Amino acid sequence: MLSLAACGGGAAADPASSKYELVQDGVITAATQSEQPPFAITDAKGRPTGFAVELMNESAKRLGLKVQYKTTTLQGILAGLSAGQYDVGVAGVGATAERKKSVAFTTPFYWGFTDILTPKGGRQNAVSDFDGKRVGAVSGSVQEDFVHREMKRVKLVKFKDQTALITQLLSGGIEAAVLGGASADAYVAKEPLRIAVKLESLQGSAFPMRKDGDPELLKDIDEQIDEMIDDGTYIKLYRKYFHDPIAADLVKERPKLTKQIMKNPDLDPSRR
């Protein structure tokens, strides 16, 4: 596990050091991933970045807190939160009903697609085209659940992270990979891959937090995200990492987006 310290925009921690119950006083201990584009990745200097990371860093800055990142897997994020090792998970984590039994979630900050990827020369265009094929997904992900639920006739192969998943897809170890749409777009842009099937996601991505953690911190992070929507910071970050219009389901969860969409008609959900 790699530990990476990142200051939430350089703000001093003292003003908020006694306000929240945290693993470390005045510091948000955050679990993240190193290869989940565009939500959480490690840059050339070894620092965590991505849409979810920048959103959390800005939220922490506005709350007068620092963020210390620890890199692990998706399963490590959820298990670590349940064990009280972290305050928050910073990645694209689906807020499923099953996960809500063991961790708390903020309001979703993103809502996307579920994509099935194949090598560029693939001819599959429907879920049923993968019957009998070796299809990969990250272990413990909502995409693994999707394969179990919607692709019952495939041979599921589970991987610890997206790096291993894509490596096997490119080498022919598996014939398809199921990913969140934003991650799929990122890989298609740089690898000889294609999106064979695109389906709407059933739940949004949110920040998971300790079930027994400070409810005020969860509430305040949500409020900071809404403030970022109001002042245009959220839209600026969204445009940096995504090209699709904003999902209608996300607007329902965060209605303040309605005003921003009126100013940015290309982000209108009807264009998806």
Rank of each mutant, 00 (worst) to 15 (best):
K61Q: 13
R62F: 03
R62I: 08
L63A: 12
G64N: 13
G64P: 13
K66Q: 09
K66I: 12
V67T: 14
V67I: 15
Q68E: 15
Q68F: 10
K70A: 11
T73W: 00
T73M: 00
L74M: 02
Q75V: 03
I77Q: 14
I77Y: 06
L78W: 01
A79Q: 05
G80I: 02
L81K: 09
L81T: 07
S82A: 15
A83C: 05
A83D: 15
G84E: 09
G84V: 13
G84C: 08
Q85H: 14
Y86E: 14
D87C: 08
D87T: 07
V88G: 12
G89F: 02
V90M: 03
V90D: 01
V93A: 10
G94W: 01
A95Y: 10
A95R: 10
T96K: 03
E98M: 11
R99H: 13
R99M: 09
R99E: 13
R99L: 15
S102G: 08
V103G: 06
A104Y: 03
A104E: 05
A104P: 04
F105G: 06
F105N: 05
T106P: 14
T107G: 12
P108A: 13
F109V: 15
W111N: 11
W111P: 08
G112C: 06
F113N: 11
I116M: 03
L117M: 00
T118Y: 00
T118C: 00
T118I: 02
G121L: 02
G122A: 10
R123P: 02
N125G: 01
A126R: 00
A126H: 01
V127S: 08
S128C: 00
S128Y: 03
S128R: 12
S128Q: 07
D129R: 03
D129S: 06
F130P: 11
D131H: 07
G132W: 10
G132A: 12
K133S: 15
R134D: 12
R134N: 10
V135C: 08
V135S: 07
V135N: 09
G136K: 07
S139W: 03
S141H: 05
V142Y: 02
Q143G: 02
E144Q: 11
D145L: 06
F146D: 02
F146N: 05
V147L: 06
V147E: 04
H148K: 09
E150I: 07
E150Y: 12
E150A: 11
M151G: 10
K152S: 05
V154K: 05
K155I: 04
K155H: 06
L156I: 04
V157W: 12
K158A: 06
F159D: 01
F159E: 03
D161Q: 05
D161S: 08
Q162V: 10
T163V: 09
A164K: 13
A164R: 13
A164H: 08
L165W: 09
